[in-house]
C-alpha cells in the first residue's frame, strides 16, 4: 500500500474519530464536577478499614483483583522478555570493557545509590499512608541499583546483581500475593478479602489489615521485575554479540 494511500486512510480515520470524540467531549459532565458516587463510596470504605491512602485501599483491598491482574501482566512481561531476548545459538557473550567515569559523576552515583534505595523502601513501606505504594517504590529501588551501571560500568553492576536470584524473587513475590489471597479464601471469606488481620489504628504503619502485606509483595515483585527487565536489555546492548566468536 503506497504511503499516500496510507496517509489518506489515516486522515479519514483520524478525522472521523476526532469528530466523534469532540461530540462526546461536549456531552461529558463539566470538568471538575461534584458527581463522583463511586469515589465517595471508596473513600468511606477505605476509612472504615483504617487505610489512610484511599488509592492504596482501592488498589490492594477494594479492587485487589485488578492489581492481581496488573502484577501478572508485569510477571508475564518479565518471562516474555526473558524468552525474547535470550542468547540464541548463533550468538556469544563478550565481556564488557571497564568504562572510565569522571570523578564527580562516580562519586555522585555511589553517594545517591543508597539514598535512592532507602527512598524506594520508604515509599513502599508508607504505601498505605502517604502518596506512593508498592509499584512506585519498587521502580525507584530497582532504578537506584542501576546507578552502579551509570556511575561505574556494567561489570560492577553484574557482580552485585545475580539475575537468577531476582527472577526467583519475582516468582516468589507473585506467589506470595496469590497465597495471601488464598489464605483469605481459606479463612472463610472471599479470595483477596481483607478480613484476616485487624485493621490497626488509623495512619500507622500496620494499619489496613492485609493492605501492607499485598503492598510489600507488589513492591518486591516490581523491584525484581524491573531489575530482570533491565538486565535482559543490558545484556543485549552490552554483552551479546553476533556470530560465534570466542
Amino acid at each position: 500500500m503506497s504511503r499516500r494511500f496510507r496517509l489518506w486512510l489515516v486522515a479519514v480515520g483520524g478525522a472521523g474519530l476526532a469528530a466523534l470524540f469532540t461530540a462526546a467531549a461536549l456531552d461529558l459532565p463539566a470538568f471538575g464536577g461534584d458527581h463522583h458516587p463511586y469515589g465517595d463510596r471508596a473513600v468511606h470504605a477505605s476509612l472504615s478499614r483504617h487505610t489512610a491512602n484511599v488509592i492504596a485501599s482501592v488498589n490492594f483491598d477494594q479492587r485487589a483483583f485488578d492489581t492481581l491482574g496488573e502484577m501478572t501482566i508485569l510477571f508475564a512481561a518479565v518471562i516474555g522478555c526473558g524468552a525474547l531476548l535470550r542468547q540464541t545459538r548463533d550468538e556469544h557473550r563478550a565481556t564488557p570493557e571497564p568504562q572510565e567515569v569522571a570523578r564527580p559523576v562516580r562519586r555522585y552515583a555511589l553517594l545517591v545509590l543508597p539514598v535512592a534505595l532507602l527512598t524506594g523502601l520508604y515509599v513502599i513501606a508508607h504505601g498505605q499512608l502517604s502518596p506512593g505504594g508498592g509499584f512506585q517504590g519498587g521502580v525507584v529501588a530497582a532504578t537506584s541499583l542501576h546507578l552502579l551501571y551509570l556511575g561505574a560500568d556494567y561489570r560492577a553492576l553484574e557482580r552485585v546483581r545475580p539475575v537468577a536470584l531476582y527472577e526467583t524473587g519475582d516468582a516468589v513475590a507473585t506467589s506470595a500475593y496469590v497465597v495471601t489471597g488464598l489464605a483469605a479464601l481459606i479463612g472463610g471469606s472471599a479470595f483477596l478479602a481483607n478480613t484476616l488481620l485487624p485493621y490497626g489504628t488509623f495512619n500507622t504503619l500496620s494499619s489496613g489489615g492485609t493492605v501492607p502485606l499485598l503492598n510489600a509483595a507488589v513492591g518486591m515483585e516490581v523491584a525484581c521485575a524491573v531489575v530482570v527487565l533491565l538486565a535482559r536489555f543490558l545484556d543485549q546492548a552490552v554483552e551479546i554479540e553476533e556470530g560465534n566468536g570466542t
Binding site: F135, Q136, V139, A142, L230, F233
Partner: peptide
C-alpha cells in the same frame, strides 16, 4: 493525583529512557 504522578516520575524519568536508549544502542 500524587500516587499516579509518583509512578509516572519513577517510570518516565529513568526506566523508559534507559530501555529506549539501550534498544537504540543495540
Amino acid at each position: 493525583a500524587p500516587d499516579v504522578a509518583l509512578s509516572q516520575l519513577a517510570v518516565g524519568s529513568a526506566l523508559t529512557p534507559l530501555l529506549l536508549l539501550l534498544a537504540v544502542h543495540k
